[in-house]
């Protein structure tokens, strides 16, 4: 108890014992010094002249971005269509692959612990690697284009959908599963009748949420050559056409808002 007695015999209350207090100070000290160390490293690698100039650069950027060159929007419909296709087809492909992986990764449905760790490995690798990295990789393999984008989105989605879905599977109520097994159902039938109905809403919700994220991510895949509106963004930035860039930003912003709205609507309809 952190209540101690002073030499005069008066009880003193402290939140922590002396030892715990010291440990906490030490932890804070270590944390702060680590932060300062990191800060110093970043600061060493920074040209402070540029940073001091940031305000002027920012103002300059804004002045160059306005007014947006609205006429440029006409060029963007096709890339936008591509972007939406990348996200949608990629999501579809991704959830098709994630579905079995999730069942193999969930503790209560996996056929074998070894299979489980393999499935978890797939999920972690897919999750750790950003879709842009997947895209870079696939562009060098498949060549630039929409296909690389679709596969990149799919590969990244496996981990995301797989992880959330396997967590949902692990949280199902066990009694219906038990009841279905007790009827003499086979393993697949138990999955189909006992497990699947319980996770279906979660699966649908996760998929449409991932689709919404994928719309966002596919807007930038073009930066590495994987198709979509990012290609235009890259071109405009390279040619310093900032008034075009602002049009692209506005279009991305609008698309993302719409997709977010759709995904929220669908999720509410499901539950």
């Amino acid at each position: 108890m952190p209540v101690s007695t002073t030499p005069q015999g008066l009880p003193v209350w402290r939140r922590r014992t002396t030892r715990a207090q010291w440990l906490q100070y030490l932890a804070w000290l270590a944390g702060v010094s680590l932060f300062l160390l990191c800060w110093k490293m970043i600061s060493d690698n920074t040209m402070w002249v540029f940073v001091e100039d940031a305000g002027r650069q920012g103002a300059d950027l804004i002045s160059r971005m306005t007014p947006p060159e609205w006429g440029y929007a006409n060029v963007l419909w096709k890339p936008m269509w591509d972007t939406i296709n990348i996200a949608t087809l990629g999501t579809a492909l991704g959830i098709m692959m994630a579905f079995p992986v999730a069942f193999l990764a969930a503790r209560n449905t996996t056929p074998h612990p070894l299979v489980r760790s393999l499935a978890l490995m797939v999920i972690v690798s897919s999750r750790s690697i950003n879709s842009l990295i997947w895209a870079m990789l696939l562009v060098t393999i498949l060549g630039p284009g929409v296909l690389a984008g679709i596969i990149a989105i799919a590969l990244r989605s496996i981990g995301f959908v797989g992880k959330l879905l396997y967590e949902a599977i692990e949280e199902i109520h066990p009694t219906p599963v038990e009841a279905i097994s007790a009827t003499g159902a086979s393993r697949l039938q138990v999955m189909n009748y006992g497990v699947l109905p319980q996770v279906m809403p979660a699966f649908a919700g996760i998929s449409v949420y991932r689709w919404d994220i994928n719309i966002r991510e596919s807007t930038v895949l073009g930066l590495v050559g994987a198709g979509g509106i990012g290609l235009q963004l890259n071109a405009s930035i390279n040619s310093l056409a900032w008034d075009q860039v602002s049009v692209i930003f506005i279009m991305i912003f609008a698309t993302v808002l719409v997709s977010e709205w759709i995904s929220a609507r669908v999720r509410h309809a499901i539950i």
């Binding site: 219906p176 009841a179 279905i180 097994s181 009748y193 006992g194 319980q198």
Partner: peptide, 29 residues
């Protein structure tokens, strides 16, 4: 297992299936 029917405390029905589907699941074996 087919020849042993089991009835549970918390009914153990699959909530999101219809009544008919729940009953028919008795045929799964």
């Amino acid at each position: 297992r087919r020849s042993m029917g089991m009835i549970f405390q918390e009914y153990a029905l699959v909530d999101r299936l219809t009544v008919m589907e729940n009953v028919l699941s008795g045929q799964l074996g």
